[in-house]
């Protein structure tokens, strides 16, 4: 199931399929290690609903829903046990 990253729930895992069209944003994401094929875990939303926190490559990254909405991920069926 391919959905925007922003629509994942806490502790759900996904694999990045597509990055935002905007090359500027896509490039920054790539350099931070968010590439097609990278596995990410949705950690939480900020108290006001935006931005969100995700985990990838062993570290935590926060980004806004506007950008996370354009990142398409394939939702993994099993969720990691915390």
């Amino acid at each position: 199931m391919n959905i925007p990253l922003a629509q994942l729930e806490s502790n759900e895992e996904g694999v990045v399929i597509e990055l935002p069209r905007d090359e500027r944003i896509a490039n920054r994401l790539r350099e931070m290690g968010l590439l097609p094929g990278t596995t990410i875990v949705f950690v939480r939303r900020a108290p006001l609903g935006d931005p969100i926190e995700i985990r990838l490559r062993g570290y935590s990254l926060s980004l806004r829903k506007s950008e996370a909405g354009e990142i398409i991920v394939q939702k993994n069926k099993h969720t990691p046990h915390e």
Binding site: R24, I25, R28, L29, M32, P51, E53, Y59, S60, L61, S62, L63, R64, S66, E67
Partner: peptide, 9 residues
């Protein structure tokens, strides 16, 4: 719009 990408160390 600026990009908000921030590591949470």
């Amino acid at each position: 719009t600026s990009i908000f990408l921030m590591e949470l160390p």
